[in-house]
């Protein structure tokens, strides 16, 4: 006898999606529960793996005034939860000329003067589904410490929930992304092996191989792709490819 899928045997619990009551299997994530209720995602759903930041969701539990947050794809439903997704937030995003930009705090402040409207209320940190110390990285940017802001904001997945709660109307996540870009490209110490590899590629190291691939038929390409050697899941740290071809 084949086993029925979990979603059919699991206990049904009530949840409220945008205020409307639905009965959903208690084992589902919020994202699957929304789909179970009949919604179809066109946006607000990306990797389904907790990384892309597209499915930020706010919810409340009965009898609790607090707003809780989670990624819809990572958070399991709870009975009586009231939820809505905030997949996108129209936060200010500055455009800039990266090449000429100086990697200093003052340059970030000039692009985002609203930075100075932070009141340290900490709503951003409280709302972050990735447990990033948002208020602290904003404090670091304010004082011009880009390295610290980069370090503190590293786990940000750009969901934008911080901005949705900010009384100063700061686009924290965009500010942090700019800081990491400035840090990565202009402040982080250069690594010799990367520089050497970039030069090797620029000098045409892969050119011949690319030319060969271009001449192949789709079937040949498929065959090659399927037969390629892959790093196994949970490979030991010192795992090495059998062939160095293409490296």
């Amino acid at each position: 006898m084949s086993q029925a899928p979990e979603s059919l045997t699991a206990k049904l619990i009530p949840i409220y999606i945008m205020g409307k009551r639905y009965e959903v299997p208690e084992t589902l994530t919020i994202m699957k529960a929304i789909e179970h209720a009949g919604y179809k995602f066109i946006r607000g759903c990306g990797c389904r793996g907790g990384i892309c930041g597209a499915c930020g969701t706010v919810y409340r539990r009965p009898g609790d005034y607090r707003i809780h947050v989670g990624l819809a794809c990572q958070t399991v439903v709870e009975p009586e939860m009231v939820l809505t997704q905030i997949p996108f937030y129209p936060a200010n995003r500055a455009s800039y000329d990266y090449a000429t930009m100086e990697a200093v705090g003052a340059a970030v402040g000039a692009l985002y003067p609203e930075l100075f409207r932070c009141v340290a209320c900490n709503a951003c940190t409280k709302v972050c589904p990735m447990d990033v110390e948002v208020m602290d990285y904003i404090a670091a940017v304010k004082r011009g410490d880009l390295a610290e802001a980069m370090r503190l904001s590293f786990d940000c997945i750009q969901c934008g929930l911080c901005a949705s709660r900010c009384m100063g109307e700061l686009p924290q996540y965009h500010i942090a992304q700019l800081v990491r870009r400035l840090y990565g490209g202009k402040l982080a110490p250069a690594t010799d092996h990367v520089d050497a590899m970039v030069k090797k590629i620029a000098d045409g190291y892969y050119q011949q191989k690319i030319d060969e691939l271009k001449k192949m038929s789709v079937d040949e390409l498929k065959k090659l792709y399927t037969a390629r050697e892959q790093e196994p899941h949970q490979a030991p740290e010192l795992w090495k490819a059998k062939s160095a071809e293409g490296l």
Partner: peptide, 9 residues
């Protein structure tokens, strides 16, 4: 307590 300005300008 330094304050922001003392870390830059």
């Amino acid at each position: 307590y330094p304050g922001c300005t003392l870390k830059s300008r």
